[in-house]
Design a protein around this nucleic acid. Sequence first.
DNA 1: TATTGTTATACTCTATAACTATA
DNA 2: TATAGTTATAGAGTATAACAATA
Lengths: 162, 162
Amino acid sequence: MAKPSNLADASQALPDPNEARVPMDSALDDLIGYAMRRAQLKLFQNLIGRLSDHDLRPAQFSALAIIEQNPGLMQADLARALAIEPPQVVPLLNKLESRALAVRVRCKPDKRSYGIFLSKTGETLLKELKDIAAQSDLDATAALDGQEREELLRLLKKVYQD
Amino acid sequence: MAKPSNLADASQALPDPNEARVPMDSALDDLIGYAMRRAQLKLFQNLIGRLSDHDLRPAQFSALAIIEQNPGLMQADLARALAIEPPQVVPLLNKLESRALAVRVRCKPDKRSYGIFLSKTGETLLKELKDIAAQSDLDATAALDGQEREELLRLLKKVYQD
DNA sequence: TATTGTTATACTCTATAACTATA
DNA sequence: TATAGTTATAGAGTATAACAATA
């Protein structure tokens, strides 16, 4: 297929190959969704790098924090809190159990379900991970001052809690 | 492995099964990264739903907008602008070409490379897609007023442009 | 020898259907 | 029959190595 007749006029406006190698976006520049995706990727990559020292993924850190706040919760609850499907909880919890950070305990009247709890090891590591995550946050938003950071957090919560 | 000795104290504080089924996060509540991930997922899902009417993905929309701003750019440039690897550009561009929205043209002195351009069809559709994306933005951030939306955009740009 | 685009491949993430064991 | 957890599987998204054509 060579140069179809509906090819847009483009023979002019070719960017100088010697100038900035990163094309500008325009059109996308006014979209909150676009800016948020790029900012989120930056924060996520930063956190992934820091957590990798402990061989953990962000979802595993989130799971530990949610378990701490809701000891004894069921896997279905954890899935809902993490906004993932129940089958995805299985390998995640298996990993946490194999590292002795959390445990499944059959303790409910309903013998089908487990209560999920942190181990002492998990509680101790989670303390450290919270500091790491807070530092990652500061690092990835270093362009903001404290007041801007608080305002950003407030606005983001307002968006997702709606 | 049954109830290891380092199991954290958890026999108390079990959430009432009759109350809110969504466990709270705490610990995560002060993290910009966590709030941004949740807000970003909300915006992304909204946009995915709206673009699906046109059988397009967000990355394909972004590609169209970038091509419009940089007619004649090479695939390596597009990959860099989209923050993806060159091999991922191939199926993306194949899709846009099969839909007659964009074209690869061998027109450079370097016969290895292509210049990428929008077709007239692509230009027309892109106009519509921009409105859709803007509406998606407004919809997913309906909890914010105009001033908050501008402030959020400003802060996000400051973060990712750093 | 280096580079553009491409193919092949693999690894992760995510989602769905089906299975088990309890209820 | 319905539910909690699990298994199996398939589809995206993403990354790397290797190849062909060209420089």
